[in-house]
Each structure stands twice: as structure tokens, then as C-alpha cells.
């Protein structure tokens, strides 16, 4: 069983790890391609509490936007794989991750300027 945590902001991955008040935890069972989704609303935004949640819940991978070096190093040191600077809808990030195609720094948004697609 694999657990993946994504701090979210509406439908998107939260731009900042330390300011996220909502997270989604994806639980991937062996042999089941569709992960179970568990939403969690946090009482307050706190990077320390998120780190604690990640460690106590046995999260293997964190997919997030901006994260401070201190927390990145701490979680990496605690053997949590951190894919940071991922931008865009969390559902899309989840799909790509399950397919093994998500990378740190990946942008999943459609680029637009004044309503026109410029991708």
C-alpha cells in the first residue's frame, strides 16, 4: 500500500505547502489502479503540523507546490519522496503520478493569456 499526500487549494495543488489548509491523501493498493481518495481539512495552516501528519500517517510521497528547503530536507531525510513545484489541477497530478509520469517542477496548467491558449 502506497500513500500520497497533496496539499490542495480548490481544485489545484496548493501553491504553498506551509499555507495549505486542505489536503488529499491518495491510498494506492497493490493491484488496484484507482486510488482511494481521502480529503482532510486542517484546523490551521502549519508546515510543522503537515510534516507531523505526513510522518504519522506513513505518507510515502508528497506532491506539492512551493515548499521551504528546511521542510523539503527534513521530509527527504525521513525518506518521504517530495515532488515539489508541481502546478495545476491535483486530479491531473494524481493521474500522472499513478502512471509514473509526474516529475518535480511539472506544470499541468494550460497556458493562457487574455483568454487565448498560448501553450
Amino acid at each position: 500500500m502506497d500513500k500520497i499526500l497533496i496539499p490542495i487549494y480548490g481544485q489545484d495543488i496548493a501553491p504553498r505547502f506551509d499555507l495549505a489548509t486542505e489536503v488529499v491523501i491518495l491510498i494506492r493498493e497493490v493491484g488496484n489502479p484507482t486510488p482511494e481518495e481521502r480529503m482532510m481539512v486542517l484546523p490551521q495552516a502549519s508546515a510543522e503540523q503537515l510534516c507531523h501528519l505526513i510522518l504519522s500517517d506513513g505518507i510515502a510521497t508528497l506532491i506539492c507546490g512551493g515548499i521551504e528547503e528546511e521542510y523539503y530536507q527534513y521530509l527527504s531525510w525521513k525518506k518521504v519522496a517530495v515532488l515539489d513545484s508541481v502546478m495545476g489541477p491535483w486530479q491531473k497530478a494524481s493521474e500522472l503520478f499513478m502512471e509514473g509520469r509526474l516529475r518535480a517542477g511539472q506544470c499541468l496548467h494550460t497556458r493562457r493569456m487574455e483568454g487565448k491558449d498560448v501553450s
Binding site: 501553491p15 504553498r16 499555507l19 507546490g65 502546478m87 496548467h109 497556458r111
Partner: peptide, 17 residues
């Protein structure tokens, strides 16, 4: 990397959220 994207994802400012 930045053009065409929502500024909050690039700026990642406290105020954005």
C-alpha cells in the same frame, strides 16, 4: 516557465493564498 500561468503558482506569495 512563467508566461501564461496563474501568478499565484509562480509567485507563491503568502498574500496569494
Amino acid at each position: 516557465q512563467a508566461l501564461g500561468l496563474p501568478c499565484r503558482d509562480i509567485l507563491r506569495s503568502r498574500q496569494c493564498m
